[in-house]
Amino acid sequence: MKNNMKNIQKGITAILFAVVIVASVLVGMAAALAVGETKTVTDTEITVVYGEIDDTIDNTIDNTIDNTIDNTIDTTPPDITCPADVTVEQATAAGTVVTLTATATDNSDASPTITSDALAIYPLGTTTVTFTATDDSGNSATCTTTGTVIDTTPPSVDAGLDKTEEQATAAGTEVTLSATVSDICDASPTVTWSHWPTAVFPHGSTPVTVTATDASGNSASDTVVVNVVDRTPPELIIETPPELIIEDDVITVEQETRDGTVVSLTPDIMSFMGYNIMYLQ
């Protein structure tokens, strides 16, 4: 680059120097002549003058350009422009991929080097990224931008299918419920139940709502219904005294008096069971 500048400036300056020096030589020759005296300039004299001109031009231009270039120092840093701040939704448990690109220009370096502390994946929250542009003279400039990852997505909640259970006791039936919960950001969302998940549910239908809340405050709910039904018919138990014998739908008792024996059987039970009464004599 330095040599190219020399050649260009040398060509321009040579013309100017030639004119000035030739004029000076001619004036000097003319001054040495008497009035009315003439002198013929030979080729040798012209060659000598040209050689002096060429040497003078070379030395002057070399020294001038060397001093100018050597004394020129690039202290101007590049002009760097950062991308605008960006906000994105969290995509995975690790975070979100965000592409941030800065640009830079420089007065002497056509392609300044740009470096940064940008991340491959940005976690939940705000991350500040610093970009640095450096030119080939070692001058540098910096700028910053931010990448913000937010979580507005609620957890996923599945309370399962409705349950139907047979009533086990007069109080109801013990039933255990469970739910499947997941979240993009929070590995362990908080789970709450509107009814204890393991409890005795009474006869009838009981809706139970499960709610999951993640660390960002997002929540979602699902409801399951527990149905306790009674499909078991009652069991008829007749308590008889030791002396009363029931066999093949025939009740046999010991006669207690001349008139017989008193047996406490209600008509509806007798009709239901179709008993026949036999008296032992």
Rank of each mutant, 00 (worst) to 15 (best):
T223V: 09
S194H: 02
A93T: 11
G138F: 00
A14D: 15
I184T: 11
T76Q: 12
T209R: 06
L119S: 09
V225C: 02
I73V: 15
G204V: 04
P77G: 00
L177P: 06
C143E: 05
L119K: 14
E52L: 15
P207Y: 10
I15S: 10
I246K: 02
S221F: 01
S194G: 01
T146R: 01
Q9S: 14
D109R: 00
T252W: 01
D79P: 02
I251F: 13
V88E: 14
I237L: 10
T223K: 08
A104E: 01
G11P: 06
N7F: 07
T142G: 06
A133Y: 00
I73E: 15
T257W: 08
Q9R: 11
V181Q: 06
S24P: 00
T169F: 03
D222T: 04
L16M: 14
V20H: 06
A179P: 03
Q90H: 07
S216A: 08
I114H: 02
G36K: 03
A30G: 07
T75N: 15
T92H: 06
I69N: 09
T127P: 04
T126Q: 12
T206P: 02
D85K: 05
D183P: 04
L16K: 14
C185Y: 08
G147I: 02
T128Q: 09
T190V: 05
T252E: 04
D74V: 01
T115L: 04
T128L: 04
D151Y: 05
Y279V: 13
I8L: 10
I251K: 04
D230L: 09
T127L: 04
D70F: 09
A171I: 13
